[in-house]
Nucleic acid binder design. Structure first.
Length: 577
RNA sequence: CGGUGAUUAGCGCAGCUUGGUAGCGCACUUGGUUUGGGUCCAAGGGGUCGCAAGUUCGAAUCUUGCAUCACCGACCA
């Protein structure tokens, strides 16, 4: 434990800083409550100062993460936030990372970056420090501020530019060993979120451009989440919709019954327009999207057509994995569209196209469908694959939707929102190769290491916990991360010597036993004190008043359940045993 | 990056249409009052109205530019 907890706390010596009114700039509930309860203050877009109460929570999350990482066998280190640019050139990310990477120069005009992540630094470190396979496997982690120059910071602490992250990296000679550590980390993550008291789910995730074989995200379930998670209603299956496979329909494609007919569709530009104009079911229409393909040897960029059922949405990640399509995904410009199909975007269809056509599995199952005619203000009805368009490839290129069969084979898909608070993946050799990270193996040969990488958004967890645990009075902290375990709330202490004596005595006892207590010794009316402590979410309130002192009792109020009960003063400590 | 909106006291807002000595509520200070759920009364302190230029005798108010903050979008076929 690296953080020394300060137990002694009186409100008269404490920066309470609660707000009665919600600042106008706060949109989501966690942001509002973090401002109102005095956890954070905004400095600039996406930059926050942590006040005492917020910092206590942040440190508690941090400590749970630290303990479980240590238990999983990882060593803690601390790397600089400012990193030399040449490391990023070595890995290739100086060019690849884009504008999220904040670049700066020092006084000698040497280029640096503000670290959005630390793969380069740690891989370089390990490349320098390790020589032999005998030193493997090795896991290292740090808890560090990261900076990502987000296009649009939003939702307060949930998507800020500077944020606290735990990032861990493991190094191995063999894939098999990496898989073992990966599983260990997976288990450690589950223990972390269990201990934090959050409702979370590990979900299958896309490995992104980094590649690698396995990846899981850990999501805290909350309606305000930014990610869609696909669950099976009949099994443990859970996957990010980016990743969830949309299965091909089980049924055979129906035989054509209609003839191909061109119909005039003036001013019909979108699928919605089309459905309204022709009064057809959206599920009998297809949309055709033109995107840029991979540049060929002549330096030309071919255009590729993607065909989806009208009601389905394109999954960019799946498309980027296709060999014909350029990554990152780029839609064809108006000029490119005109050059290929001689019509506007709203009238494109697969019939008669002489470019690569990739059809989603569901769209490929349609018969007698409606599509663009590749002529302005014209569409085709009664279109059928094979008969009217025979050269195409079928692939999974859409997002799953609620009700789809689950790819695990059991049940149907349900979609919920999640806040991504953790991400683990098997990196492979990408960075180790680029940074020359290798050791001598048993045969005395140089062997490049394979890596795993494991992140947790520490500050984001604080916001996610609030999103999941609040009511109209304020925050309801899970016990493990509450800033204080108990608040002493004396009624009219200024006038009653008995109340003051009792409150002071209990405060002293809590301090001796090491229970984090906030003693409200302000000269405030009871309502003000109650409101502040409920806003801050302290799990237990100890209310001391003349009313119950004759019977040597105090009142205990549970913030989570709302239950109130009377307790003999002598029994108060038993609440915490 | 595109669109929209905002910027006046620590916070929440009014004033701007129709230019003429900057206001309200909360918070803060002082005195009194009250004391088991955000008391009440009284007296105070606090603002170069985001910045810059322009119009005008005179600008929070009109014009132009800039900055900052926020929201929506970045899937259009």
């Amino acid at each position: 434990m690296y953080f020394t907890e300060i137990l002694v706390m009186r409100t008269s010596q404490y920066l309470l800083s609660t707000l009665k009114e919600t600042p106008a700039s706060a949109e989501v509930i966690s942001h509002q409550l973090m401002l109102r309860a005095g956890l954070v203050r905004n400095l600039a877009s996406g930059l926050y100062t942590w006040l005492p109460t917020g910092l206590r929570v942040l440190k508690k999350v941090e400590n749970i993460v630290r303990e479980e990482m240590q238990r999983a066998g990882a060593n803690e280190i601390l790397m600089p936030m400012v990193q030399p640019a040449d490391l990023w050139e070595e890995s290739g990310r100086w060019n690849d990372y884009g504008p999220e990477l904040l670049r700066l120069n020092d006084r000698h005009k040497r280029p640096f970056v503000l670290g959005p992540t630390h793969e380069e630094v740690i891989t370089k470190l390990v490349a320098n420090e390790l020589n032999s396979y005998k030193q493997l496997p090795l896991s290292l982690f740090q808890i560090q501020n990261k900076f990502r120059d987000e296009i649009r910071p939003r939702f307060g602490i949930m998507r800020s530019r500077e944020f606290l992250m735990k990032d861990a990296y493991s190094f191995h000679l063999e894939q098999e060993c990496l898989e073992k550590t990966y599983q260990k980390m997976f288990d450690a993550y589950c223990r972390i979120f269990d201990r934090l008291g959050l409702n979370y789910r590990p979900v299958l995730a896309d490995t992104g451009s980094i590649g690698g074989d396995a990846s899981h995200e850990f999501h805290v379930l909350a309606d305000s989440g930014e990610d869609d998670i696909a669950f099976s209603d009949a099994s443990d299956f859970a996957a990010n919709v980016e990743k969830a496979e949309a299965l091909a329909p089980q049924t055979e494609r129906a035989e054509p019954t209609q003839t191909l007919t061109k119909v005039a569709t003036p001013n019909v530009k979108s699928i919605d327009d089309l459905v309204n104009f022709l009064a057809v079911d959206i599920k009998t229409t297809v949309k055709t999207l033109l995107v840029c393909g991979i540049e060929n040897e002549q330096g030309e960029t071919p255009i590729v057509a993607l065909v989806l059922r009208g009601d389905h949405q394109l999954n960019e990640i799946k498309v980027e994995h296709l060999s014909q399509v350029a990554s990152p995904l780029t839609f064809a410009s108006e000029e490119q569209i005109l050059a290929v199909v001689h019509c506007n975007a709203g009238s494109i269809g697969p019939v008669g196209l002489s470019i690569d056509i990739i059809v989603d599995r569901s769209a490929a199952q349609l018969s007698d469908f409606v599509c663009g005619a590749n002529e302005n203000d014209q569409h085709l009805t009664g279109t059928n694959w094979q008969r009217d368009c025979s050269t195409y490839q079928v692939a999974d290129i859409r997002n799953v939707v609620a009700g789809d069969p689950s790819p695990c084979g059991q049940g149907n898909i349900v979609i919920k929102r999640g806040i991504e608070v953790g991400h683990i993946f098997q990196l492979g050799t990408k960075y180790a190769e680029a940074m020359g990270c290798a050791v001598l193996n048993e045969g005395g040969k140089n062997q490049t290491l394979t890596m795993g990488c494991y992140g947790i958004g520490v500050s984001r967890i604080v916001a996610a916990a609030i999103e999941q645990n609040h009511d109209k009075y304020g925050i309801k902290w899970p016990k493990a991360i509450a800033p204080f375990q108990v608040a002493i709330v004396p009624m009219n202490m200024a006038k009653s010597a008995r109340v003051k004596e009792t409150a002071e005595a209990l405060y002293e006892q809590f301090n001796q036993v090491g229970i984090e207590v906030l003693f409200d010794d302000r000269k405030e009316r009871p309502g003000v004190m109650f409101a502040d402590h409920e806003l801050m979410g302290t799990p237990l309130l100890l209310i001391i008043g003349e009313r119950n002192l004759d019977a040597q009792q105090v009142e205990v109020k549970n913030r989570i359940t709302g239950e109130k009960s009377l307790l003999a003063i002598d029994d108060v400590m038993s609440l915490f045993s």
